[in-house]
Nucleic acid binder design. Structure first.
Length: 470
DNA sequence: GAGAGGTAG
DNA sequence: GATTCTACCTCTC
């Protein structure tokens, strides 16, 4: 099937591989429960509300994305449909593992979503298919999850190729756009409705119909400049991308975030330590949530409080102040004795107080972070009216980057309290559930319904799967 | 700089 | 009885 004609474009340009895990959530569940293979499986949203991921078998039963579980469950009885509550600890961890493996194939990696990444490839177009197969095999052998790979000169075409790879068995999971003849490419683009192109959805489809564009090929042949004027630069880029001209660059590999700041001004000044304690607890939870969202852990926590700024105008100098003009003294009293003080932050309004704490281990756990933040309280000056406070997390490292021995994993982390609070907040709004005095403000404790939860195979030693040999 | 419109996953 | 939800981009005002 592969080209008796010459390839459609020169072989020397750089290529993009788009890799994604098939039915990622389901595949993550299957990786640890092989009994799920070949069966219709769905993963449910928070609170077991509706289906957010479906295996091919479940799709074949006609279960649409987002179908409420109360409707889907009848398939359970009739067709053996299996449901799993979403287990984001597991998915996040599996995702990190996939991305780590993909990183071996290119330093030029853009993690696009929990289950997708773009990789820049610098190899001759003829070799790219082999690389694609290697990627697929590596992830399968390493993690037991199937991935599809699309390879092309642009992101849009790479996504398109990935789609082809998945749709048609003939590709066996890997489609190299450059291995197709120009004629084959045109045939494929003709059969592809324009709204199946990345970045073109139903609205744009309707607009394009009015100017006679219905297929991917129609769009590719449209005049880029005219389309930019009529529609948008986004659409113009898509046209260029369809022509194999990269117009949506790969994000350059980003240096990991150095710090995460959570700070707010108060509506009314805080003077009492008890109140500040509550503020710090809430801020620690917020900061923890943000850390978790970015898959990070912190090694150091700093906490500060500022009194009302009669030293007018200094209040917002916080983030971009000159580190050399540091007005804070030594390290925090709850810290490790590492000293250091406020090296990263600059001049403050007179009366500001701060601490820096080295955490016993890199963590995103709200309980540990709150405990560390509370070391600010003894620093407060009696009678001072504080109008602003915050938490700064530094020395951030990727979550799960290194193995942590069971001895050092604190019990809150094991129970996944951080993610739980986040999920509840997500569902019912922030402030309903919290730690200690940050919680119970409404007098109601909600707990998420997760009746079909799989074990935390990779993030909880107690739930490690057991392999029996022999 | 906020808000609308659009899109992706 | 119930029905994901957020991030991000561009364009406009």
């Amino acid at each position: 099937m592969i080209g008796e004609e010459t390839p459609a474009a020169p072989a020397s340009r750089s290529l993009v591989a788009h890799v994604d895990v098939n039915s990622f959530f389901v595949s993550a569940e299957r990786a640890f429960d092989p009994s799920l293979w070949g069966k219709p499986v769905v993963v449910l949203s928070n609170n077991d509300g509706c289906c957010i991921a479906r295996s091919d078998e479940a799709k074949a039963l006609g279960i649409p994305m987002g179908m409420p579980w109360f409707q889907a469950r009848q398939y359970g009885r009739r067709y053996g449909l299996i449901a799993r509550s979403s287990n984001y600890e597991l998915y996040g961890d599996m995702s990190a593992r996939v991305m780590e493996l993909l990183g071996r194939f290119s330093a030029w990696k853009q993690v696009y979503s929990i289950d997708e990444a773009f990789l820049g490839l610098r190899c001759p177009a003829e070799q790219a298919s082999m690389v694609g197969r290697d990627i697929r095999q590596t992830v399968w052998r390493g993690l037991g999850m199937p991935v599809g790979v699309g390879i092309a000169p642009s992101k849009t075409l790479a996504k398109l190729a990935n789609r082809l790879a998945r749709r048609s068995q003939a590709w066996r999971g890997v489609c190299n756009w450059m291995a197709l003849t120009a004629r084959q490419q045109e045939a494929l683009l003709t059969s592809l409705p324009v709204n199946h192109i990345w970045g073109v959805a139903s609205r744009m489809k309707r607009h394009l119909e009015q100017v006679g564009i219905t297929t991917a090929l129609d769009l590719r042949e449209a005049d880029p400049e005219k389309m930019r004027q009529h529609f948008s630069v986004v659409l113009m880029r898509t046209i260029l991308e369809l022509r194999g001209i990269p117009a949506i660059p790969l994000d350059p590999p980003q240096p990991p975030r150095q710090q995460l700041i959570f700070s707010r001004s108060f509506s009314t000044p805080v003077t009492a330590a008890a109140q500040m304690r509550q503020v710090m607890t809430v801020y620690a939870q917020q900061a923890s949530a943000r850390l978790a969202k970015h898959g990070l852990q912190a090694q150091h926590l700093s906490a500060f409080a500022q009194p009302s700024a009669y030293a007018g105008g200094v209040t917002d100098a916080w983030a971009n102040a000159d580190p050399a003009k540091n007005s804070f003294g030594g390290g925090g009293d709850g810290g490790s004795g590492e000293g250091g003080g406020w090296k990263t932050y600059g001049p403050q309004a007179p009366g500001s107080v701060g601490v820096r704490v080295r955490l016993p281990m890199p963590t995103a756990d709200p309980v540990l972070l709150a405990r560390a933040a509370h070391t600010l309280l003894p620093r407060m000056v009696e009678g001072t009216r504080y109008v602003r406070a915050g938490i700064v997390l530094t020395d951030l490292t990727p979550l799960g980057g290194q193995q942590v021995l069971e001895l050092f994993v604190n019990p809150h982390e094991r129970r996944g309290i951080g993610p739980l609070i986040e999920q509840v907040a997500h569902k019912y709004g922030h402030g309903l559930l919290g730690l200690g005095e940050a919680g119970l403000r409404e007098g109601v404790v909600w707990h998420m319904r997760r009746d079909h939860l799989s074990p935390h195979y990779t993030t909880n030693w107690k739930e490690l799967p057991v392999v029996k040999a022999g």
